[in-house]
């Protein structure tokens, strides 16, 4: 069964005088417990696809199904228990006047889930932040620390599907490794499904079974992990991305 099915999705934003075609006729399927990557040019519509799934972008055509069912509008509580997103811009997605404690416990309170104290401590530990950070505010954290809070928050409700927008691009190599290991462990243990965006082909290769390459709002080419690692791409654009990532190859 496909956990996420997107068919012919288009997202258009009205802009002065012209329409911004952020996403144009994109289709993709992510099987249950699979991990699917989105890569491509900056501004090509990757974040917009994730936002559209969450009901945060104006869908002008196409359908989105989760677990075989079309997504409801508005998305509602059942959806947010099932699907969580880690935003590309952690600063903007964390409330500036809420402590980490409040940021992390609020989703539990909304959904009437108890034991929040222990869960908050556990969540901080999972993403490698000291428990003493619990009462800090976002502005008292470094960029990478904020990003880890955003990941911790998405995990609080134990969703089945994680939409991850550049989850490790603000992290140094060691914290990136720990975060990727955590995500992979959770996927194995809880049977999660991932749809993730990254500019780093090595991260995508490490995490994803399949990857869709995007440019100008359109899908350019879909590749299996083997085809990616084996340089078996058919389009020029996918090849350009691959060749510009030569320093990320095994043995380089």
């Amino acid at each position: 069964m496909s956990m996420i099915e997107i068919e012919n999705l288009s997202v258009h934003y009205p802009a002065k005088g012209q329409l911004v075609r952020a996403v144009e006729g994109v289709s993709l399927r992510v099987g249950e417990k699979d991990s699917f990557g989105l890569v491509g040019e900056s501004g090509s519509g990757k974040s917009t696809i994730l936002r559209a799934i969450c009901g945060l972008a104006p869908v002008s055509a196409g359908t989105i199904r989760i677990g075989g069912e079309p997504v409801p509008t508005p998305r509602g509580r059942a959806f947010s228990r099932r699907v969580q997103m880690v935003f590309q811009d952690p600063y903007a997605s964390l409330h500036p006047r809420h402590t980490l404690d409040r940021t992390l416990s609020e989703p539990l309170a909304i959904h009437g889930i108890g034991g929040s104290d222990a869960r908050v401590v556990r969540a901080l530990e999972d993403v490698g932040l000291p428990a003493a950070f619990r009462f800090r505010y976002p502005h008292q954290l470094s960029g990478g620390q904020r990003q880890r809070v955003a990941i911790a928050r998405a995990l609080m409700l134990e969703p089945e599907i994680l939409l991850l927008d550049e989850p490790t691009s603000a992290l140094d190599a060691s914290v990136q490794a720990e975060t990727l290991n955590l995500l992979n462990r959770l996927r194995a243990e809880r049977g999660l499904t991932f749809l993730m965006v990254s500019h780093d082909l090595a991260v995508i290769d490490h995490m994803c079974d399949r990857v869709l390459v995007m440019q100008h709002g359109r899908a350019v080419e879909e590749l299996t992990r083997e085809a990616l690692a084996g340089a078996q791409m058919k389009t020029d654009y996918a090849r350009t991305l691959f060749e510009a990532s030569a320093d990320r190859m095994l043995g380089s």
Binding site: N181, V203, H206, A229, R248
Partner: peptide
């Protein structure tokens, strides 16, 4: 050195990345 060892690589074996 530890930092360099933690990097994933295209075509790598996907086992957990070494920690630091």
């Amino acid at each position: 050195q530890g930092l360099l060892n933690c990097l994933p690589r295209i075509g790598g074996n996907r086992s957990p990345l070494p920690g630091l």
